[in-house]
Simulated assay, not measured.
Amino acid sequence: MSEADYFHNMPHNKMDPNPFLAIFLDQSIPFNEEAKAAYLKDCSSRSRQFLLPVLRPLARLLIILFQLYKIVVPKAFTSSKVLHRLLYWGMKNWISSNANYMILRHFYLGSEVLQFIRDNIPGVQVEMNPLKPTNLEPVKDDLFLIHDLNLYNFVINLNKEIREKNIQINVQKQLKFDAITSEPLPIEPLPDRWHNFLDLTTAIEIFTPIYQFFLTDHDFWRATNSLQLDETIGILASKIIGSNERLALINNKHPMVPMSTLGAGFRLVLHGLATEQLHALLVELKHKQAQGTPA
Rank of each mutant, 00 (worst) to 15 (best):
Q289R: 07
L278G: 12
N252T: 07
L65S: 14
Q277Y: 07
R163D: 11
E112K: 11
V73T: 13
I187M: 00
A179V: 03
N225C: 10
S243H: 12
N157D: 15
E164T: 03
M102S: 10
F107P: 06
F207M: 10
S111Q: 01
R246Y: 14
E276G: 09
Y108V: 00
A37C: 00
G272E: 12
N150L: 01
K132S: 10
L273G: 08
P209V: 01
V124T: 11
F24Q: 06
I29V: 12
L151I: 08
N135F: 06
N170R: 15
R48C: 08
M256F: 14
D141F: 00
P74A: 04
E34V: 10
W221E: 15
G242A: 06
F24Y: 13
L21G: 07
L273M: 10
R118H: 11
H84D: 04
H147C: 01
E183L: 11
V257Q: 15
E33P: 09
L198W: 01
S28G: 09
L83C: 04
Y152L: 04
W89I: 08
S79A: 05
G242R: 12
Q67G: 14
E161M: 02
L86C: 05
H8F: 13
T202F: 02
L52V: 00
V72A: 08
Y101Q: 08
L198H: 03
H195W: 12
R60P: 02
Q172L: 10
N32L: 03
T181E: 14
L273K: 10
A37W: 04
L268Q: 13
L282R: 13
F197W: 15
N120L: 09
D219I: 04
V257K: 15
P130F: 04
H195K: 13
F7H: 05
F266P: 01
A274W: 08
Q174W: 03
V139P: 02
L145M: 06
G90I: 04
A295E: 11
I241S: 14
I64M: 14
G292H: 04
P186M: 01
R246H: 15
P255G: 09
P30T: 03
N93E: 05
D217Q: 11
L229F: 09
I64P: 02
K41T: 11
H279T: 06
Q212H: 10
L285I: 09
T293W: 05
F31V: 02
I233D: 11
L104W: 02
T181H: 15
L62C: 12
K70N: 05
L52W: 12
E284W: 05
E205C: 07
L21T: 07
R60Q: 15
V126T: 00
H12S: 12
A280I: 02
N244V: 13
L143F: 06
L52P: 12
N196H: 01
M1Y: 06
M256Y: 15
F107A: 06
A295C: 14
A295P: 03
P255I: 03
F154E: 03
L262H: 10
A274P: 07
H84C: 00
A35L: 08
E164I: 01
S182M: 07
A76P: 02
G265K: 00
G110V: 01
D42N: 12
M102N: 12
K286I: 07
S45P: 00
A37F: 00
L58Y: 05
V139H: 04
H254D: 14
K92W: 08
